[in-house]
Write a protein that binds this DNA or RNA. Structure first.
Length: 194
DNA sequence: CTATAGATAATCT
DNA sequence: GATTATCTATAGG
């Protein structure tokens, strides 16, 4: 047996398809060394999805996506920013959820200092911004999200809104971006679907 | 509010 | 050699 299994509630929440995990992570609290906030925006990526890094199979970069549920997949984008994903769905290897925005609640002064920004709305409103604010780097690729320095606690999701993902070319129509309705901390507005 | 340029480097073809 | 799950600053309506 694994000497340090995931909490059963967290395990069952994450051992599901990326789309449903992306919804369930909204409202959860994510901290790194006590600094962070409430997840308000996510995107789902699955191995069957042309937009996913895992679409063409395992590589050195995306190895964490094919590892155990509940780990971090951290990668560098455009040569200068970091992005953080939650690995999920142990029935379909290569699934993960990109954390796109947080509502800052803890360590706000530390985040302002790291980001060089005063506006709380802009501290964590974007995947690379949130990594900069929390101090997430490639060193944390593959790390467990339920143990230090990370902390991940599920929360009650408010009303959820879906829309197309941002910044991708393939699979652009798939509405796998999710946000907390009415949140002022989204990276971009997300309209309610009729 | 939208549009665009530039930064900058690993990854993959 | 092309691409990239971004951000910031700047210019224009």
């Amino acid at each position: 047996m694994n000497p340090h299994p995931l909490d059963p509630a967290l395990k069952s929440a994450l051992a599901a398809p990326a789309e449903s995990v992306a919804r369930r992570l909204l409202g959860a609290t994510l901290l790194v060394d006590g600094v962070g906030g409430i997840i308000v925006e996510t995107e789902a990526y699955a191995a069957t999805d042309p937009a996913s890094h895992s679409f063409r199979g395992p590589t050195a970069r995306n190895a964490a996506m094919f590892g155990p549920v509940g780990r971090a997949y951290v990668y560098r984008i455009y040569g200068l920013h970091w992005c953080l994903n939650v690995v999920c769905d142990d029935r379909q290897a290569g699934s993960a959820v990109l954390i796109r925005a947080l509502e800052p609640t803890a360590g706000i002064e530390a985040m302002k200092a790291r980001r060089g920004v005063e506006d709380v709305r802009k501290l964590c409103s974007g995947p690379a911004r949130l990594c900069a604010a929390l101090g997430v780097t490639g060193d944390l690729d593959g790390a467990r999200l339920d143990r230090p320095p990370f902390s991940l606690v599920l929360g009650a999701p408010a009303e959820v809104v879906a829309g197309p993902r941002i910044g991708i070319t393939r699979g652009a129509e798939t509405p796998w971006r999710f946000g907390v309705a009415g949140s002022r901390f989204l990276s971009r507005p997300l309209r309610q679907l009729p």
